[in-house]
Simulated assay, not measured.
Amino acid sequence: MTSDIAADSIVCSDLSITHTGARGDVERVVDGVTFTVARGKALVLLGATGSGKSTLAAVLAGAAGAGVEIVGGDAVVEGISVRRPGRKRRLLSVLTGHLGQSDGATLPARLTVGEIVAEPVTSRQRKVNGRALSFRVATLLDELGLPLGAVGKYPYELSAGMRQRVALARTLMLEPRLVVADEPLANLDVEAREIVRAALAGRQREQGLSLLMVANEPETVARFDADVLALQAGHVVGIGHGVRGMVWTPSSEADRRLVSS
């Protein structure tokens, strides 16, 4: 499955998103957001809990949950409109790797680590080269600092930090052009955080991987030489290149403290 490589990984234009709750109440969670992620570059979304950043990330990855609807604007991700993906919806899931906020904590309990990491391939192809697939899984685990012995283990046998890296390995399995990661460093100790940053930065440098990450660590912004976009109640309240280069709206003092070093 192939696609022409778009000049920009993400072009988000005046995007507005609502969420309809179980009682039918409709809340606008993202309101008029505009930005671009150029090929091979990184953008970090930051903001307080409930600011809309996780919903925005999920929509851009084509992984929005029930009740989430785009009601204004559009976003073109890897050349595909997320508002009207049509037949290209499956292609979007191949070109874009998505690490959700709770993915590390919700790994399939009855699958081994090897099966979980291989799932993006095995769920799409009936016939696979088992040896090549096993090698690919082992390579990803090694890249993320996980022991080869983890291949046959089940999620309950792993620490929270190891499960998080297993989820990331699964995200990278199809060699996506863009990774959308919601708190990719959650539950990781200092050493594991550096391993994950190094793995993603290496792919960005060597393969032109584009990144959109939800994170509040200035170290992550600096490591990826990232642009930064801050949200507050669904509105953009700060934007710029790097933490020090951000321009803030006058009413965003609370959000500024999220990235103070």
Rank of each mutant, 00 (worst) to 15 (best):
V179W: 02
E191K: 12
S102F: 15
W248S: 11
A198I: 10
Y156E: 15
T96I: 09
K127Y: 00
V77F: 06
A254F: 05
E206F: 02
P250F: 09
R170P: 01
L56G: 00
A181N: 09
G114L: 14
Y156Q: 14
H241N: 13
G161C: 08
I17H: 04
V11T: 15
D74A: 13
M173E: 00
G32K: 10
M246N: 06
G72C: 03
V82S: 06
I17G: 03
V180G: 02
L91I: 10
P155W: 05
R257C: 09
L229W: 03
G21R: 12
S3D: 13
C12M: 14
T2L: 15
S81G: 12
G145R: 10
G32E: 12
R83N: 03
P184A: 04
K41Q: 15
R89N: 06
G104T: 03
V180K: 02
K88Q: 15
G67R: 10
Q207R: 12
D14L: 05
F35Y: 13
G104W: 05
V243F: 11
A6H: 13
S252V: 04
R257W: 15
E115W: 04
R193E: 14
A169S: 09
R165D: 11
D227W: 05
Q164S: 04
R89V: 12
A169L: 04
G100T: 05
L91T: 11
